[in-house]
Design a protein around this nucleic acid. Sequence first.
DNA 1: TCCATTCTATGATCTGCATCATAGAAGCTC
DNA 2: GAGCTTCTATGATGCAGATCATAGAATGGA
Lengths: 230, 230
Amino acid sequence: MRPSFTPIGVLRKCQVMLALPEEALQDIAANSKMAAANRGESLWIKGKDVDFFVAIAAGFVKMTRSTSQGVDVTTEIFGPDQVLGMLGTIKGSGCPQAAFAVCETHYLRVSKERFLPYYRENMVLKDHLIGRTSDRLTRAHAMLTRMSTSRVEVRIAQVLLVLAESYGEPTPTGTILTVPLTRQALAEMAGTTVESAIRVMSEWQKRGVIVTKSKHIEILQLAQMEALLD
Amino acid sequence: MRPSFTPIGVLRKCQVMLALPEEALQDIAANSKMAAANRGESLWIKGKDVDFFVAIAAGFVKMTRSTSQGVDVTTEIFGPDQVLGMLGTIKGSGCPQAAFAVCETHYLRVSKERFLPYYRENMVLKDHLIGRTSDRLTRAHAMLTRMSTSRVEVRIAQVLLVLAESYGEPTPTGTILTVPLTRQALAEMAGTTVESAIRVMSEWQKRGVIVTKSKHIEILQLAQMEALLD
DNA sequence: TCCATTCTATGATCTGCATCATAGAAGCTC
DNA sequence: GAGCTTCTATGATGCAGATCATAGAATGGA
């Protein structure tokens, strides 16, 4: 089954974009194209200048940086109805990080050129953007704090909890992450190795704190994981 | 010698505030008070709701979070002519981090109440703010990347280089950091221990990469330190 | 000037986790 | 279902750096 998304439909679901009037959305949508990326494919690479930013229709995208040692670090994950690359668009500098699909992802390539004139005039949009960027900064600082000092177990807990906040869905037994993650992907976010990530997750699995069903992690003992953070 | 700063003088030097018209600055200044903090004193503590944000006249302020293990982590350092707490002011949520003076610091307590009405109407100010916040986010991600994967030596190099970018002044022999830093303060930014910070700095001192003169670090071999990052 | 605190320095030990190695399980493609 | 790749799993080893301990240097206040 091929999900069919229309540009305007995608835009209308994005919180930030709703600050724009319907005509603007229509105009931008008319000049933007849907695209798809399979797991592992890049939406753009670092430094590459593209003429669009992204609005996600379905799927998940990770933003990564790679240290010269070849280790990749994932700084953020974006999901459905979120936009990415907007800041780079506004600054005209391009995004400082590469973006990769975490799973099959459908997204809209929003025309920068069409978007910018509306953006410039729109105070509400700017307010939204400030709020969103401010939240991201807070989250980045929270991550920075833990990633730089805590043990691996705590770092992974932090990552899972942050993800659960954005992409967790309650189930009868706990909270399941809608974003599909391998141990490798988790390790990249926690700044550790696959092996360590696996060890921690296995241990938690044994203790009944979590359970994973084909790349979807379910947190059974949320409280126990939160307890690790303090 | 007591440096004398006037509220309006401080505001006029802040890049972000310049988006406001002179009358607005005058009005805000008339309702804001200068204050001072000695090294180690807090300008505010986390969660505490205050009715001002800060514009630094002289000195340096570090933003910190403390993990429950009692370890403090410094996420950012602000210097002269910079504002802090503005995002918290706008969101009405208060700042998520505590702020401490790194050395004797003189600052203006800018009245939130006076500032906000002008802010709401001012598109240019919002543009400035978006640019600034975007930069901070980029820096936070860059830090996150290195802090979570690199060895201590590299982490400290990264911290020094980021500081040098904002607070480095060229000298005949190299680049000196205008912000006074103890090994402890450095360790807090690099997410390591005092001892490790001292070991790394001592080693560099021996090799002539850096030299410290009463808390002011001078980088003699900038290239050599940058080489560590890749 | 003396005393107290803070800061730098360095050595000894202990441990978390990266690294290397190997293998079974699960998922895809033909 | 055979064979490939990707993912999970687990054990052995080594090292970076935390932790503990101790002491001298620098700074600041009475």
